[in-house]
């Protein structure tokens, strides 16, 4: 299973890393900054944190439902690719061994129920689960 999801880029679930990076720059970097460190009072830090959400209950769903992801003007497969690329680019060390990359179908389902005002509190809740690990 994992083998067939491996792609030319070497990153699971990332068909075209150049396209993923372009989509990152155009849709995310403006607020999250080039190194994903985020901005005070604005977009949260992702670097070294993002993949840790995959390790807690509800975290995988959270990443597909945060407003910036769910509302990104991208197709489902481009968005799934961008999510996978971001995980490996900004927090490779925390990506679980058994990580199944996001697929277009899963992303379509998640982004249909976006987090709006509760995004920040949901994040705090999840961070609380893994921060003491």
């Amino acid at each position: 299973m994992t083998l067939c999801l491996m792609t030319a880029s070497g990153l699971p679930g990332v068909e075209n890393p150049a396209r993923a990076q372009l989509n990152w720059i155009l849709n995310c970097q403006g607020c999250h900054q080039a190194d994903a460190s985020g901005s005070a009072g604005g977009a949260p830090n992702m670097a070294g944190v993002m993949a840790r959400f995959l390790r807690v209950e509800g975290g995988r769903e959270y990443l597909g439902r945060v407003p910036g992801v769910a509302h990104a003007p991208l197709s489902d497969d481009a968005l799934a690719e961008l999510l996978n690329w971001s995980l490996y680019t900004f927090d490779r060390d925390h990506v679980p061994e058994n990580f199944n990359p996001y697929t277009a179908d899963e992303v379509r389902r998640l982004r249909a129920a976006p987090l709006i005002s509760e995004a920040a509190s949901k994040r705090e809740e999840l961070v609380e689960l893994f921060v003491h690990e």
């Binding site: 372009l22 720059i25 155009l26 970097q29 403006g30 607020c31 900054q33 901005s39 604005g42």
Partner: peptide, 21 residues
């Protein structure tokens, strides 16, 4: 400002689109 809005513009010199911040 480190927080920016980012788009693309076409460069008339080579006809390619560049990412502009």
């Amino acid at each position: 400002s480190p927080i920016t809005w980012i788009g693309t513009c076409q460069n008339p010199a080579d006809g390619r689109s560049y990412i502009i911040s």
